[in-house]
Design a protein around this nucleic acid. Structure first.
Lengths: 207, 207, 207, 207
DNA sequence: CTTTAAACGAGACGGTACGTCCAGTCTTTAA
DNA sequence: TTAAAGACTGGACGTACCGTCTCGTTTAAAG
């Protein structure tokens, strides 16, 4: 996203500056949100000249994409307890936990707000933030299928699309944590069991 | 959203100005998007002083909410052919058609981008833009249930949530019109029939 | 130098801002000089937005020309004691006094530095700062001629050119006040008496 | 002005860089003037890093002084036809010719603009650019005095000051070549003959 | 009618942030 | 060690809008 000139000659870019910029970006993003966050303020907080930022990133979107990558870049371990529903709970819990922080909220807001206006950046945010969880879901699904935990035929790709869409939708339009969780479980249940269960989808399965 | 002072004394607000402001807002929203649209430009295009806008709306969000209401305020007739799948096609077609215009795209972008950062306005946009389609879906669903077209027990509220979420998700992350439509149909089919059918869900039902 | 739009419509320009800008310009000009004086600093000292300056002046040169006009615009009274040499001393004294202040030095530096690079502004500075003194000299010269104090034929225009050039040259290249004064007197003496007198030109005349 | 470390050890300074810097400085000085000329632009045109300039010169003034020295450093031969007025014409012609080029104009602008603000550099420019002509004038004057061409008693130093001041003044404030020349001749005539002759000063003398 | 109060268009106000440019310094690799 | 290249902090540039504030001018209801 950054390195422009070919190689060694000249003073190399400062790694301290790199990191100060990314840290300042993340903290300001969490505090004031994407729109209200000015390059000027990032530079000031990072203790860096504006040109040092513009040398690395040609837009706020690029900068934020890189900052989020530095934050969410590390892979999360995929739980493996041998029980699909338990693993699923863990993954969904991770997603919700990561999303209901200040930074998480701003990130998800960013993904959905750039989705239409700047598809290429939405893709980047998607790849860094959403794709890992999608992948985790897909792995769980495959493992459960191989173990024979899931009998119904549902496409793995479609399954994760469905769960991802329900998570985004719930975060956007469901007001409380419990309604968010409830909506997501209901969708999962429909997908796996083929029927809607407003009450306790898991208990019936686990009995 | 606008009228502030109690009564008649003084020069009344100009209806021409009202409409010029809303028109200018809508056209600029479609052309340059919410973020890039400046109050200054709206005033200029409307041939109106900036104060005339600020007298009516205290923020860009309020202004845009009102403009969208003026645009999408009229109810769309709910199709009623007697066949659930046919009516559903019509409603989904309407949504997609309304969304894949410049203004529709910007509106949906606006809804999803304000969802996290300005929930109160997201609610307004939601009420004006999304709720009518949700309601239409709910009506179709009820009618089909009463006609016995749908046997499975699925909650109406949950059904429309599911379809709405799939529409939003598809518009955000599915690249082409056909993949958008395909994803939505698949979700509907799962909800109604309890199973995923990547191929031709309707044909099987209609036979 | 400033008014751009035709007339009364819109909010009128603020006279307080006008004056604050000119005052800030003059004081900064005296303190740090033309080159080191930033528009940003002028705006800050004047308690005014940058745009308020740029609305009035399209360049630093225009601004400074106007500021100097406001400072040196008032005419100085031309001394009239009946004695040419005495009046001459007074006028030259005024010039030197006005020039050996911080602001005066900066002004003269500005005149001579813009003379080649921005002739149109040099002309403005010249008209406001130099011309009045030239005119005073010319008046003295005419009066003396009419009184018969000066017998030699020397063109009045040429005389004032000569004196003006000697003043500028002395200020530029003569290090001390006394050498400045001495050089000027010597030139005046040559012009009036037709001969160079390194010593006491006036005493001989006044005896 | 440049050499800092004593001798041979390390990579020697590049003579090509020296010359490229001076050439770039002179050409940019002629093109855009002293103030608008950036070190950055000089370095770019010379194909040299900025540090390579700063290693040699600690300020733009030093750099320009050196560049002008490299340009005007060679002495001009003093004409000697045996006739004072003829030699004088030649010297004044040389001055005017050298001054009415782009580079000459910028040089003179530089001298007069730094005269007040940076006296030490004004002295350097003066020594390189003005002093040689002053010296030439002084030589002519002495020779003419020895030949008995000039009878009036005028101090040589004062004479050259007078001519120098008239040249500077004329270049600054006289608009055309002919008014410049006319003013200078008039001053010379006054100094030598003790009287102002607006018309053809030379002819009367030469007859 | 004539007040009178508010809205009108226009545009200036003090500010903030933009993205660019340059100053003068610092830090690399190459010669 | 110096050269060359280029990144560094810092700060001014001139522009664009922000939301507020006069102006002089309608406009309609209240007196």
């Amino acid at each position: 996203m950054s390195k422009s000139t070919k190689s060694g000659i000249g003073r190399p870019r400062s790694i301290e500056a790199d990191q100060a910029i990314l840290q300042a970006t993340l903290s300001l993003l969490a505090e004031v949100g994407y729109q209200s966050m000015s390059i000027e303020a990032i530079a000031a907080r990072a203790g860096v000249g504006k040109a040092t930022i513009y040398r690395r990133y040609s837009s706020k979107e690029e900068l934020v994409a890189d900052a989020l990558e530095s934050q969410f870049g590390e892979e999360e371990p995929i739980p493996d307890t041998g029980n699909f529903w338990q693993d699923l709970e863990a993954v969904i819990g991770n997603v919700i936990e990561a999303t209901l922080t200040d930074l998480g909220r701003q990130t998800i807001a960013l993904i959905i707000s750039t989705a239409s206006s700047s598809p290429q950046f939405a893709q980047i945010y998607y790849a860094k933030y959403i794709a890992p969880h999608r992948d985790a879901l897909a792995v769980l699904f495959d493992r459960a299928t191989q173990r024979g935990e899931i009998e119904r035929s549902i496409d793995a790709e479609f399954f994760v699309d469905l769960v991802a869409s329900s998570i985004l939708y719930a975060i956007m339009f469901k007001p409380t944590l419990s309604t968010i969780e409830s909506h997501i479980r209901r969708v999962v249940n429909l997908a796996i069991q083929g029927q809607d269960t407003a009450e306790e989808p898991r208990s019936r399965v686990e009995e």
